Each structure stands twice: as C-alpha cells, then as structure tokens.
Amino acid sequence: MARTAPYVALRLAVYFGIAGAIVIVTGASAMIGYGIGSLGGEDFRTASGLWGGAAGFGLSAGLIYLAREYILYLVKAGHIAVLVDLMDGREDSGNAGQIARGTRIVREHFVEASVLFGIDQVVKAVVNAVTSLMAGTAAFLPIPGLDTLARMLRLFLKIAVGFIDEVILAYAIHIQTRNPWQAAEEALILYCQNYKVMIRNAAWLAMFIYVFAFVVFLLALAPASALIYLFPGGWSAGGFVFALLFAWAVKAAVLEPLAIACMMQVFFRTTAGQEPDPEWQARLAQLSGRFGMLAERARDWSRQPAAPQEREAAV
C-alpha cells in the first residue's frame, strides 16, 4: 500500500471530499429550510430545517450515486491496475506519474468508463446470484429457525464478497488480456472453482474492515455531534449520520484497497496454473442469465486495447 501512496492520497481526497460535500450541502439546505420556516411558528421552523437538511443529503447522495461509474474508472480501477503491476513485478514509473500510469493501464484494457462499468455490474450480478444460491440451500433443510439463519448467512456472504468484483476486474490486467469480457468470464469460473478459499479469506477480511470502520465511527461520533450544534433546528441524529459518513470515507479510502490487495494476492496465487472448468461454466450459465452476457460480449468485442508489449514499451 505504501508503494501506491499517490493513489491512497487521491482516494483520501476523493472520499473525504465527498463526505465533506455531503455535510456542507446538508447543512446549507438545513439553514435554507430553517430560514423559510421562520415565516411560521417554532414547530414549522424546526420541521422545515429537518426537511431542508434531508433534501440536501438526498440530493448530494444522489449525485454521488450517478458519478459512481467515473469514480470506479478514475480512482478504484486505476489503483487496482497499479497494485496488479506491482504484484506482478512490472517496473513502476515512479510516484510522480503513478496516477497517470494507472489511468493509462485501465484505458488500454477497458477502453472507456462505460465498458468497465458494464463489466463490473454484470460481475456483481453473477456473484450475487452465486452467493444467494449458497445461502439459500440452507433454507430447504427441515430445521426450525433455519430460515432466519439462512437470511443472516446471505447478508454476511454479500458483505464478505463485496470486493470480489474488483478482484475479477484485476484479473484482466493480471493476465494482460485484450478482451476484458472474456477475462471476466474466466475469472468468475475460477472464483467458483475455488469458492471455499475465496469466501473464507473474504469473510476474515470483511470482519476486520467493518470492525475497524466501527471503531472509526465511535471515535468520530463526539466531534460529529459537536458539529451538529452549528446546524439550526433539531438535528439530534445528525451526529450519527456524519460520523457514519466519516467512517465510510476511511473505509473506502484506506481499508478497501488494503482488502482488495489481499484478495488479489489470494486469488492470483490460488488460481495460478488453473484452467476454467467447463462444468462450472455450464452451472453459471444456468444460474444467471447475466453470465451468458459475458460470453456474448466477449465474442462481440471489437475494440482492441493496446497490446501488452506496447504498454510495457510505454512504461
């Protein structure tokens, strides 16, 4: 992680910038609502401030949701690309050009943001289908109370495999492919072939990340609650929300790339020398229609990123 300090700094700037923007927009909207509410009584003023803050929070969160495609392309994928290159022993061009290097690698393999985002969404859908199947089998056993346990298991598995999609995207860079759709198809099959190893490691990493993020949340709760006193109206729950935002920013900027790096190491080491199993390919095709899209898009892939040799020469 230390060798990718420029990307860590970029992630800190992006995610703390997002958290700060949400706080500012929420506060400004609450003040506007409170000002409008001054035309009425005390209850109306308080309610207006609350509704104004809620509207600002929803607006800023919605804009960030719409921008997630470009955050993935410019921040997450670039960081993954540099991490993969370092793991594979490809020479780093130095910290000064690391972000440009990561962006260039992503462009060479995925061409544009829409391609990367499309692959990511398909991979997530297939992984969720596999996870639901694994958790859902427990619900069919005739044991009282097992249905609730199955729902809890499904929730835990979804959290645990939350980074698998980015590891699968990293596989395309790892094998230096010219067809990212085909690489995603192969990586999904390899993931399912080794699901016990992958889920076990993902579960431990998820526990570490969320426990650490919870500690950050607790530490941020006091200063966030103090910040609420600057807001008009009854924003008693605002401290909780802002502390949650701060913990999310730390998780996204620092903890997630650490977990992804660990998962990539496990995945690359476990699948080294393996070939995709046709039986698993058939199972995935039956389980999720989205998996068939990967094969179809792989066949239709016409844009050819730069060859690996060209990228090495450009470094």
Rank of each mutant, 00 (worst) to 15 (best):
L72G: 07
A243K: 07
M1G: 13
A96M: 09
I164S: 10
R303H: 10
H174I: 02
K196L: 14
R11I: 01
R104H: 11
L227D: 00
I199A: 09
R178D: 14
G20K: 07
L157F: 14
T46C: 00
G40R: 11
A298V: 08
P144S: 09
R154I: 02
A125T: 15
I71N: 03
L219I: 15
T26H: 09
G292A: 10
G97E: 11
S29D: 04
A139H: 01
M1D: 06
E310Q: 15
A307M: 09
G233C: 03
P180R: 06
A19D: 09
A61P: 00
L83Y: 00
G292F: 03
Y34M: 01
R154T: 02
I143F: 14
L116D: 10
A81M: 06
A100M: 07
C262S: 13
G41T: 09
Q304F: 06
G20C: 09
V123E: 04
I175T: 14
M198Y: 00
R290K: 12
L245E: 07
E166M: 12
T271C: 13
F240E: 04
I189T: 12
F57E: 00
A314V: 03
L39M: 09
L146N: 08
A282E: 15
L133D: 00
L10T: 10
V106L: 12
E296S: 14
Q281L: 05
A125D: 08
A67E: 10
L50C: 00
P278F: 07
V130H: 02
E310H: 04
G56R: 11
G89C: 08
F246T: 15
L141M: 15
V161I: 04
P308I: 03
P278E: 08
D277V: 11
A150N: 07
W181N: 07
N95C: 01
A129T: 13
L258G: 05
L287P: 03
Y34K: 01
S225F: 01
V111R: 14
E186L: 01
D300P: 00
A139F: 11
P144I: 10
G20D: 08
V123Y: 02
I22N: 11
H109Q: 07
G35S: 13
G239E: 07
C192N: 02
D85Y: 06
L258K: 04
Q304N: 03
A113H: 12
Y15A: 12
V25M: 08
L149K: 05
A150V: 08
S93F: 00
P278A: 10
A150C: 10
P223T: 04
G233W: 02
F268Y: 15
V254Y: 14
L258H: 06
V127P: 04
Y210C: 01
G238A: 15
S48N: 05
L59S: 12
L12K: 05
A282P: 04
G89K: 08
S114N: 12
G41A: 08
Y195N: 03
M152P: 00
I99S: 03
H174G: 02
E166K: 13
